[in-house]
């Protein structure tokens, strides 16, 4: 259970996330939607503590995540795996090593510095890659892969962390429709294995078809929280003041994607 209590983040005079409170039971797949600058990314990054909250608390299974430091913070980051819009793989390292990065928190420092991974870890990484049909590419450099392949490598890396929670920040905004579907399907599969998934999406259609629950943000505040069925076109107009088409166009533009890219899966 992930509990967020009155979480706030200010950048100078601007409030990016404004008193957000959410309770997310284990195993839920939650889509976070909102226009550009609504605070979606900041919210997700605060959960992983890549961004420090200004106020409020994050509690995971009774543990206050906002107070963690040092070793405990790194352990928490391992358990709440991030997936980024731009994949954030190390381009000059091979795919296998990129996936093994997901193990770094759980193994001795010195042997990691010399890239001395055990046969078991290598086999685990290959198994994770094989799940996304990428085992054959394990020895290629990450920059030789297409965007969709790189995002699947990033998911394999996340799974190597043995996470309890997956935080995906616009995972498909830089991908074409076919790869978007592969990546979203992968996230749903991971969710069905019992992991909680929080995914920022610019595309309402994708959010409706994949998520159990949708949280809509506007100017840092939660303006909708419920099942996809309740997020009707009328409701969109009510909370955002624009039609669904306008909303989709604007949100897509903000992340540099083409609007309505993903058909119903």
């Amino acid at each position: 259970m992930l509990e967020i209590e009155r979480l706030t983040r200010r950048f100078g005079t601007k409030t990016a996330v404004d008193g957000v409170s959410l309770k997310i039971p284990a195993g839920q797949m939650v889509g976070v939607i909102g226009r550009s600058g609504a605070g979606k990314s900041t919210l997700l990054r605060m959960i992983n503590r890549l961004t420090e909250p200004s106020e409020g608390r994050i509690i995971f299974d009774g543990q206050d995540v906002t107070q963690l430091k040092g070793r405990a913070l790194r352990d928490w980051r391992m358990r709440s795996a991030m997936i980024f819009q731009q994949f954030n793989l190390v381009q000059r390292l091979d795919v296998l090593t990129n996936v093994l990065v997901g193990r770094l928190n759980q193994r001795p420092m010195l042997s990691s510095m010399f890239k001395m991974f055990t046969a078991e870890e290598r086999a685990m990484a290959l198994t994770a890659l094989d799940r996304f049909d990428l085992a054959e590419a394990a020895l290629q450099r990450a920059d030789t892969l297409s965007g969709g392949q790189q995002q699947r490598v990033a998911i394999a890396r996340a799974l190597m962390q043995n996470p309890r929670l997956i935080l995906a920040d616009e995972p498909i905004a830089s991908l074409d429709p076919r790869n978007s579907k592969i990546v979203m399907d992968a996230l749903r599969d991971v969710n069905r294995d019992g992991l909680t998934v929080l995914v920022n999406l610019h595309d309402l259609t994708t959010a409706r078809s994949y998520c159990d629950r949708i949280v809509a943000l506007n100017a840092g505040r939660v303006v909708f929280d419920g099942p996809p069925a309740e997020l009707t076109a009328a409701r969109i107009r009510e909370v955002y003041g624009v039609s669904e088409e306008e909303f989709a166009e604007e949100a897509a533009l903000a992340v540099g994607a083409t609007p309505q890219q993903l058909a119903v899966a």
Binding site: A119, R122, A123, T127, A135, L139
Partner: peptide, 13 residues
């Protein structure tokens, strides 16, 4: 299964 992978992709080890 480690050995299986080793046989399939020896260079990865």
């Amino acid at each position: 299964s480690i050995n299986l992978w080793r046989a399939r992709m020896p260079a990865a080890f």
